[in-house]
Design a protein around this nucleic acid. Structure first.
Lengths: 132, 132
DNA sequence: ATAGGGATTCCAGTTACTGGAAGGTCAAGG
DNA sequence: CCTTGACCTTCCAGTAACTGGAATCCCTAT
C-alpha cells in the first residue's frame, strides 16, 4: 500500500508519516520502484500513533507506548503508570487554563468595550497585581 | 537598570528579554559600556508581556496588545474583542482536554494494572473505534 | 593582578511537524 | 509513442518561542 493510501487509512498526513519514519517510529518495506509499501500491520501502528498523539502523548511517550505495544510480555501496570501520569498532566493543564480563563474573564467583564480609551483589560495586564 | 535587574523585576528570564528585543517587542537604551539599560517604563512593558504570555496570548497577539497599550486613543472595544476571542480559544482548549481526559480515563479504569500482559489501554489505543 | 559575577554576541537545538522545490513513476487518453 | 496528471521520492528551510552554550568583554573587590 502506497503512502497516500496509508495516510488516508491512518488519518495522518503523508508528510507526518515520512517524518515518523525519519525519527524511527515506523519503517515500512519499499517496493521495487522505491515507493514506501505499508502493510495492514503498519497502518495499525500508524493509527496507534495517530490516536496516542491526539490523546496528548508526546512523540517520546508514543515511542515508549509503541515499545510496550510491541512487547507481548509487557506488564499492564507499566502502561497504566504511563497513562495515569498523563492523566495527571491533563488535569494540571486544565486547572491552569481554567484559572487563566477566570482572570481574563474578569478583565473582560470589567471592560465596557466601547469607543472610549479606558480599558480594564489593558490595565489588568499592566498592573503589578491584577485584581487587587 | 541592567538586564539582570529588569529580569528580576519583570519575572522574565534575561534570555527571553533579549529574544523579545530581537523580535522587536522592546528596545531599551544602551549604556556607554554597551549594556542594555532598562527604564521603569520598560520594566512595566516587560511585565505586561510576561502577564499576557502567561494568560495564553501568543507573541503575535502580545504585539497587537502592546500597540493598543501604546495607543492612548485606542477604543476599549478593540481590546475587548481580542480578549474575548482568546477566552473562546481557552474554552475550546479546555473542552478538548476534558474529552481527552475522559477517553484516557476510561482506558485507565479498565486496566487492572498488574503483571499480566493484557492491557485495555494498549488495546484502546490500537482499536479502530475506541469504546464504540 | 586576579577572581567572580554579570554582561555581550552568535550559533545551534528543541518539538512536531509543514511547505516547497526538483525530479522520478505510473496509468490513461489521443 | 507521447503527454498529462496524480502520485511518489529526497532534501532543504521554516514555524513558535524560547533555551543552552561558547567565546569574549566589563566591573568590582581583594
Amino acid at each position: 500500500m502506497n503512502i497516500g493510501h496509508a495516510a488516508e487509512r491512518s488519518g495522518l498526513p503523508a508528510k507526518t508519516i515520512r517524518y515518523y519514519e525519519d525519527i524511527g517510529l515506523i519503517v515500512p518495506e519499499r517496493s521495487d520502484n522505491g515507493y514506501r509499501d505499508y502493510s495492514n500491520e503498519d497502518v495499525h501502528r500508524l493509527r496507534f500513533l495517530q490516536r496516542s498523539r491526539s490523546l496528548g502523548f508526546s512523540v517520546g511517550e508514543c515511542r515508549q507506548l509503541l515499545s510496550l505495544y510491541d512487547d507481548k510480555a509487557r506488564e499492564s501496570s507499566e502502561v497504566k503508570a504511563l497513562a495515569t501520569a498523563k492523566l495527571g498532566e491533563i488535569d494540571r493543564k486544565v486547572a491552569e487554563l481554567l484559572s487563566l480563563r477566570e482572570m481574563l474573564g474578569r478583565f473582560v467583564d470589567l471592560c465596557h468595550g466601547d469607543d472610549r480609551p479606558e480599558c480594564p483589560i489593558i490595565e489588568g495586564l499592566s498592573r503589578d497585581v491584577p485584581l487587587q
